[in-house]
């Protein structure tokens, strides 16, 4: 009984901790041939009332996942690992080409357009799953 209460508390406490946080427009860029990292993009929206701290990104078909920010210094680009992403209450963070992106490392099979993948992230301590679809991205036509 005590154990059940503890489990319930754990479960609901976690659910509340990440309430109002959604993952939209999730997509994976179909990579060129090779076993290099694959980029995933999404929008994290925090409609809750508390800061959402995201870390420990994972993907079922990938050895590991990292969040990178792209920093431009003059005409150079640098990738900066982001161990944590804090999304304030009421705010959205967009991960998009040329900016922040998830690095999906070492896929267990070729990543091709149309495939679906399950990803997850720890949101204020609660493991939160979301789905992503692979698509072939052409550069935006200006």
């Amino acid at each position: 009984m005590t154990r059940l209460t503890a489990l319930l508390l754990l479960c609901c406490g976690q659910a509340l901790a990440c309430e109002g946080v959604s993952f939209d427009n999730v997509w994976i860029r179909e990579p060129p041939p090779g076993n290099g990292p694959v980029a995933a993009y999404l929008t994290v929206k925090n409609a809750g009332t508390e800061m959402a701290v995201l870390k420990d990104w994972q993907g079922e078909a990938f050895a590991h996942v990292m969040l990178h920010a792209t920093k431009r210094v003059d005409d150079r680009v640098q990738m900066l690992n982001q161990p944590e992403l804090a999304v304030p209450a009421g705010a959205s963070v967009v991960l998009a080409p040329g900016g922040m992106h998830l690095m999906l490392m070492k896929a267990n099979a070729p990543v091709v357009a149309g495939k679906h993948y399950g990803l997850s992230v720890s949101c204020n301590g609660a493991s939160t799953p979301f789905d992503a679809t692979v698509r072939r991205e052409e550069a935006p036509t200006p």
């Binding site: 860029r29 990579p31 980029a39 080409p97 991205e137």
Partner: peptide, 17 residues
């Protein structure tokens, strides 16, 4: 470099255009 999942594919896609 090919282990560059964001900027390099975007640039090559742009060059294709």
């Amino acid at each position: 470099f090919t282990h560059c999942p964001d900027v390099c594919p975007s640039t090559l896609a742009t060059l294709k255009q």
